[in-house]
Design a protein around this nucleic acid. Structure first.
Length: 191
DNA sequence: AAGGGGATCAACCGCAGCGAA
DNA sequence: GTTCGCTGCGGTTGATCCCCT
């Protein structure tokens, strides 16, 4: 690949958290032109972001079919099953969990599941489970993590915005703008 | 009430694969 | 056949949140 030296101090490239304005620009642009060809998309849309960054933001957060909210019991079991089968093939696993992103699954695995596996591997917790099937490990952490899979927010689509807004905003932190806010603005813009 | 530490999540980085020129 | 640019993936990091002391 392009092994350019670290002259990546390009002042034109923004990094870090996305602003609401940037999100709106990206959503609007994709609504009008479709996704793909991310590098040129970023330039054409006037975003001072890399194509990579735009793609990631869209896939992991802005896409209307991205499902946010706690992982359900079924999803958790499926993740464990598929991880046992394929290992860290997060994108492959994500394909079997509609609305979930590889990043989300990866984070979930590392922060919730892996933690319990490690705990289960400690001498006090019993035998090492390293190479055993992950299904057995699931039983170990499942009860401990039960509360995390209880609540579930329904998918959020622009089409059923009213219902999803009502249910989601009721439980979300209303001091920050949410995807619903963005999509409402998007709809109000009429694009 | 304040501070510390752990947990969580969004975003970045580097690499590999693929297709077009 | 080679080079180059783009995309996708997995690993890692940094910021923020939340709970406990």
């Amino acid at each position: 690949m392009d092994k350019k030296p670290c002259n990546s101090q390009d002042p034109e490239v923004r990094k870090g958290p996305w602003t609401m304005e940037e999100d709106l620009i990206l959503i609007n642009y994709i609504a009008n032109h479709g996704e793909g060809v991310w590098n040129s998309l970023a330039k054409s849309a006037g975003l001072k972001r890399t194509g990579k960054s735009c793609r990631l933001r869209w896939l992991n957060y802005l896409r209307p079919d991205v499902r946010r909210g706690n992982i359900t019991t079924e999803e958790q079991l499926l993740i464990m099953e598929l991880h046992a089968k394929w290992g860290n093939r997060w994108s492959k696993i994500a394909k079997h969990l509609p609305g979930r992103t590889d990043n989300e699954i990866k984070n979930y695995w590392r922060t919730r599941i892996q933690k319990h596996i490690k705990a289960a591997e400690t001498p006090s917790a019993g035998q090492s489970l390293e190479s055993n099937d992950q299904a057995s490990t699931s039983q170990v952490f499942y009860a401990a993590d039960h509360q995390t899979v209880e609540t579930y927010s329904p998918p959020l689509y622009p089409g059923n915005m009213e219902a999803s807004q009502a249910s989601f905003l009721a439980e979300s932190n209303d001091s920050i703008w949410s995807m619903e806010d963005i999509w409402s603005l998007q709809l109000l813009n009429g694009d």
